[in-house]
Design a protein around this nucleic acid. Structure first.
Lengths: 194, 194
DNA sequence: GTCTATAGCCCGATAGAC
DNA sequence: GTCTATCGGGCTATAGAC
């Protein structure tokens, strides 16, 4: 039972774990209530409806991702290393309670989500693709990465492939299955040494 | 409202559509009842529990996939064409009512599924990977396809990438987004003309 | 086989006391 | 802010008539 932080944050932390493991339609205010230690009515005080909670969840997740990518940019120059660090964000989710990426699991639930949340899911993918596109472009210019076609499409392909690798690997409960695919995905894009 | 076929088949058809669009936890016997035109109690006559229904669903889906892959083998020699036909099975799902692959969407729900169904989801991925692995191996031997590493791992990567591409593209409701990625995935594996 | 009726539980959400 | 109490509805599932 996490006790740190204010109540709204603890609610979001537990709700995020539940959403990442079970999906949007398979967790309830009662589930959150048990983990946080307050009654369901009190959760409604912070998040009046479940769609309010869902929207807050994906928005906070976007901000966290944004900061993680900025942190990679701040501490690494090599585009190949940036891709490795990016891939490790995904493997970290499986290690942290068999989680999926929140964007990926909400994408599976997309047709059951309130429209505001759908828009945020797409915005999350857009955020990832823009950052990856920049890394890929820079890496190819520097002769460190190689790929066919535009950086934009290659970025979309990488996001989709990593989401898919995480989805399938998690269904086996096997993080090595993810790593094997992610490592190959990255290795195939590294320019040969000269 | 589909009226063809026996009742069990009509139930499975509707349940499959609902599962592929909404996921396992977001459809009910009441939803099926409305579409099939019989009461929920009558559905329990054919499928006593929801896990019985879910298991029947994924097993039938596996058989259908098996037949579709055998049909590709029967009508096509060229491994490149086999991959194209395989990719079109996925795009066909989005065109047929914004569906996901049943295996992919159940993978997202995996931690909420009865264990028998979990095993079938993994078996479905295994089936796809074995077939693709054979096509890739044959294609490389014939000098028509190219890729690094083993056909087995490359097959896993293709399944995961196509599932991911479908997952993300469907969240935009845009089949072109899927095709762009699938076509690139396949083009990158075609051996250059000599 | 299909129906009506209902049990028993979980769900999101609200009213109002403290 | 957090609680108790509760509403109205949905869910899976079963009993028993036809």
């Amino acid at each position: 039972m996490s006790e740190r932080g204010d109540t709204a944050t603890r609610i979001l932390d537990i709700a995020q774990e539940l959403a990442q493991t079970r999906g949007y339609n398979a967790f309830s205010y009662a589930d959150i209530s048990e983990h946080v230690g307050i009654r369901t009515a009190s959760i409604h005080y912070y998040f009046p409806s479940k769609s309010d909670l869902g929207r807050a969840l994906i928005r906070r997740y976007q901000r966290t991702a944004d900061q993680a990518l900025a942190q990679i940019d701040r501490t690494t120059e090599d585009p190949r290393e940036k891709l490795r660090r990016y891939s490790e964000i995904f493997s970290g989710m499986m290690l942290h309670g068999e989680r999926m990426c929140l964007g990926g699991i909400l994408a599976a639930d997309i047709l059951t989500l309130p429209t505001e949340i759908r828009d945020e899911v797409r915005a999350f993918f857009g955020l990832n693709e823009r950052w990856l596109s920049g890394v890929l472009d820079e890496g190819r210019e520097a002769g460190l990465l190689q790929f066919t076609g535009s950086p934009e499409v290659e970025a979309r392909l990488l996001v989709a492939s990593l989401e898919g690798a995480l989805l399938v690997a998690r269904s086996y409960g096997d993080v090595e299955r993810y790593r094997e695919l992610a490592d190959k995905l990255l290795a195939d894009r590294e320019a040969p040494m000269t």
